[in-house]
């Protein structure tokens, strides 16, 4: 082998390593492929946060595109995204809260359900209320089934009850246009009835 090859081999290896490590600088260590995409939303039967007499099941997804937002009043980022979510809900998008509170957990402390309700009303009054209703994940079993690691997280569920998108962190305009809109458009193409519905909602939303 000539001198040139002996010079080029380490150089090329070094350059490849540089590219690899350089990419690593900008990779997000918390980014993970959700294992639930394209799967049905896990079966659940949970009470409504405001009224335990109401029980919600997977039927809530029937025929509508739904955004399930995992949140809690103790979560700072959730409060930050609430105004934007409210804006979106006024455009006709349907948000459902999956609420959990660590202070209700015997492992962490004790708080009465009435206090939680009062805090939820207070928070949504201050920052906006995008939610059609809130599902109360009492023992966080559904959150665990969903692979939730913290709050906020949002799941986009299509009219057949299949999870199409799982977003970790808050929703802002950049995330919405970059990540959500393409999937929303795909769902609307699959269910043409929906796009009419959403424009109707949009009109009523504007009137309000």
């Amino acid at each position: 082998m000539s001198r040139l090859t002996w010079f080029l081999i380490p150089l090329i290896l070094f350059l490849l390593l540089t590219v690899f490590l350089y990419n690593g600088l900008f990779s997000d260590p918390s980014a993970r492929e959700s294992s639930l995409i394209e799967n049905e939303f896990p079966a659940f039967s949970l009470p409504d946060l405001a009224d335990e007499a109401i029980t919600h099941t997977n039927d809530i997804f029937d025929g509508q595109m739904t955004f399930v937002n995992v949140w809690g009043v103790w979560c700072v980022t959730c409060a930050i995204e609430l105004p934007y979510l409210t804006e979106l809900s006024q455009k006709g998008y349907r948000f459902v809260g999956l609420y959990y509170d660590q202070d209700l957990d015997p492992d962490f402390g004790s708080k009465t359900i009435n206090r939680v309700r009062a805090e939820v009303i207070e928070t949504t009054r201050r920052f906006g209320n995008p939610f059609a209703f809130n599902i109360f994940d009492v023992y966080r079993d559904t959150s665990l089934d969903l692979g939730v690691t913290g709050a906020p997280e949002t799941f986009l569920v299509d009219p057949a009850g299949v999870i199409r998108l799982h977003h970790l962190g808050d929703i802002n305009e950049r995330v919405w246009t970059g990540k959500f809109l393409p999937v929303i458009e795909a769902i609307q193409r699959e269910y043409p009835v929906l796009s009419q519905l959403s424009t109707e909602h949009q009109l009523t939303g504007l009137k309000q």
Partner: peptide, 23 residues
């Protein structure tokens, strides 16, 4: 632990680790 990346659920005190241990 999915929340606190370099801990196992035995070491972590995050809520999710509590939940996972219980599960």
């Amino acid at each position: 632990c999915p929340m606190c990346q370099n801990q196992n659920i035995a070491d972590s005190d995050a809520m999710i680790a509590h939940d996972m241990r219980r599960k």
